[in-house]
Amino acid sequence: MPKKTIREVIHDTIQDEMRRDPTVILMGEDVAGGAGCSGEDDAFGGAFGFYKGLVGEFGRERIIDTPISEAAYIGAAAGAALTGLRPIADLQFFDFLGVCFDQIYNQMAKFRYMFGGKSDTPLVLLSLVGAGLRCGAQHSQSLHPQVTAVPGLKVVMPENAYDTKGLLLTAIRDDDPVLFLLHKLQFENACEVPDEEYLIPFGQASFPREGTDVTIVAFSAMVQKAVAVADRLQQEGISVEVIDPRTTSPLDEEAILESVEMTGRVVIVDEAWERCSVAADIASIVARKAFGALQAPVMTVTAPHTPAPFSPVLEDLYIPSEDDIERAVREVVAYRR
């Protein structure tokens, strides 16, 4: 089976879908690049080159470079979705959520409900989250809790190339707005990806490691770290189950609760801040619905309540590390009433 990176999977999946369905379009800032310039056409292919070559095949009618106007083009994507297209809108950094949030939470998220179920909004907003590229406070945030909180939106956070393909196909064919959030440090990660089509349903967790002593629920780039910790602790006889919910909305509560019922111990790992977060949300769900099974306090490992720092020394401290995760796991395992 061929190995592919997340970057290649994004490119190939969008290409396949655009070939299959003429209503799929891609729009955003520099999704091709070079418009109005005298040099190379397709100069960027997206800020990180995901879409390189697509404009050559589909033309500028379907690979649409927009001005730097996130509110207008994300809103336009919503309007286009409401009227017969399946737009994929690229938002270079999810930090830019701030300039187009109205289009997301007041418009696209609410159409179906406000209109009494009589409309579809099949739209994928593809964006990047996470710290680690030394980009500073406005290009490093993990803002998925802000959108997970909004009814009407679906939020997908794949962490490997295999899942990316199956989840992106589901997202593009979904009739509701989907926020598809990749981590900046991950898109060169490769794994085996089948050529044939497969769809991964939303709200279905995966289990990168199965174990019996403690449950780690981890998202996005944190999954790999959780797996590394699980493998390390396995050698000491501590059996760690790692759950990757893959989508924060809908959330596979059942998988998490079943695991906690078995292990009695849970550590939730997410790169977002903890206050009002997905991590805090899951902690609350576990406390309410698996209280009887808990043998230790619910632990969370998240970024501290600070903006993302620029200096590499500080940024490395900001991002939850394997050591942070391991410490939390050891603490819940050692906990005695």
Binding site: I64, I74, G75, G79, A80, P87
Partner: peptide, 12 residues
């Protein structure tokens, strides 16, 4: 912006 999108849809 919604109407810009609807116009884009009609054009596409």
């Amino acid at each position: 912006p919604l109407c810009v999108g609807a116009g884009l849809s009609a054009k596409t």
